[in-house]
């Protein structure tokens, strides 16, 4: 096709400029509501620019105009095909009480795998410590766990007996725990991108450490202290890490794509929103665990009887299990955002 470029540009430029202005207005204010007439006009301008691009593409000699039009059509395409829907008010309560537990149940196999890996690590850690107590420094490389459990228990109980040993540092201690644990959980999730190898390794090593600690304290006859110390915050913290592992394994599953005919990008696109919901839920759980650990777990007998602490932990476990199993009702096909993604895909396919 041979066209008079200058005449073509002169005739079409006002439309291009109008389209560019429309795009800019929408970029400046993503929540701008357009009237029906404005939407029709936008669609007309987009189609006209697309037609101009098609026309100029057959005309071999103008690179910069083609670049300009490609840029314009690309921006308009993104705006028309993926305009964020009318802002839906995000309800944190609805999300946490419905979407998060539903997502968790929908991927129960990944959660079961995460729990299994962690338990395998715990059994290995416990067995290794019993078989070779000298390996303590390797199995749980933390200074405060190297002493004999009975010595530590005596120290902790003595500290509790005097004035509040955490006075004036509780908030910062709690914040440090929350941020540290959330960082670890994000790391566990992110390692899913190593085809799950990193996620499995971190879950297993955490299991090893917990198993070794538990075996060490039980072996020394400090079972009540162990449960009283770990259960109040561990009842939430450990499941949170397991859910992070679940998210990492979902990501790894999408990467590997076993028994799936979908391309990698689609598998990941489908898994992405669920992974985000899970890690969001993990963050909320870890905030609670951080508060409990700083304000409750660190107080021992005689200030706080172990029976109360254990009962508190057990109640948390029961509530958490009930929440995971029943909250949000029946599992739906996916979260709203996931459905939006699918609808968008269907619209594009059409």
């Amino acid at each position: 096709m041979i066209i008079d470029l200058k005449k073509f540009i002169t005739a079409e430029r006002p439309y291009w400029e109008e389209l560019a202005a429309q795009i800019k207005r929408s970029q400046d204010d993503p929540y701008r509501r357009m009237s029906y007439e404005q939407i029709r006009r936008l669609h007309y301008l987009y189609q006209r620019a697309s037609a101009d691009l098609a026309k100029i593409s057959t005309f071999s000699a103008e690179r910069s105009i083609r670049d300009y039009l490609e840029n314009l059509v690309g921006r308009a395409y993104a705006m028309i095909h993926a305009t964020r829907q009318t802002p839906v008010r995000f309800s944190p309560v609805k999300w946490f009480c419905n979407i998060f537990p539903q997502t968790l149940r929908r991927h129960w196999a990944a959660l079961a795998l995460s729990v299994s890996i962690f338990l395998a690590g715990a059994i290995f850690g416990g067995a290794a410590l019993i078989a070779d107590p000298e390996a303590k420094a390797i199995l749980m490389p933390f200074d405060h766990l190297q002493a004999e459990p009975s010595e530590r228990v005596a120290g902790e109980e003595n500290a509790s007996r005097g004035k509040d040993h955490l006075r004036g540092v509780k908030s910062s201690f709690s914040a440090r725990l929350m941020t540290h644990n959330t960082r670890i959980s994000i790391f566990v999730l992110a390692l899913g991108m190593t085809w799950g190898i990193g996620t499995v390794a971190v879950l297993f090593s955490n299991g090893v450490m917990l198993g070794a600690v538990a075996a060490d304290y039980i072996r020394s006859g400090q079972t009540a202290f162990l449960f009283g110390w770990l259960l109040p915050h561990g009842a939430i913290e450990i499941p949170a890490v397991l859910v992070a592992g679940q998210a990492g394994l979902i990501l790894a599953g999408a990467l590997i794509g076993r028994k799936s005919s979908e391309p990698l990008s689609e598998r990941i696109r489908n898994a992405g929103p669920d992974v985000v919901h899970l890690i969001g839920g993990v963050a909320v759980m870890l905030i609670w665990a951080g508060l409990v650990e700083a304000f409750f777990s660190q107080y021992h007998e005689p200030v706080l009887p172990y029976s109360i602490k254990i009962a508190f932990g057990v109640i948390e476990c029961i509530l958490l299990a009930g929440f995971w199993m029943y909250a949000g009702g029946k599992i739906s096909g996916g979260s709203d955002l996931w459905q939006k993604g699918s609808k968008r895909k269907e619209a594009l396919d059409e």
């Binding site: 993926a82 964020r84 994000i186 790391f187 999730l189 992110a190 390692l191 190593t194 955002l337 993604g341």
Partner: peptide
């Protein structure tokens, strides 16, 4: 355009 899940995920994965 991006949706919020994509933005959150790509930024969380900075960890790796």
């Amino acid at each position: 355009h991006l949706d919020i899940n994509q933005i959150v995920l790509r930024n969380l994965l900075r960890a790796v």
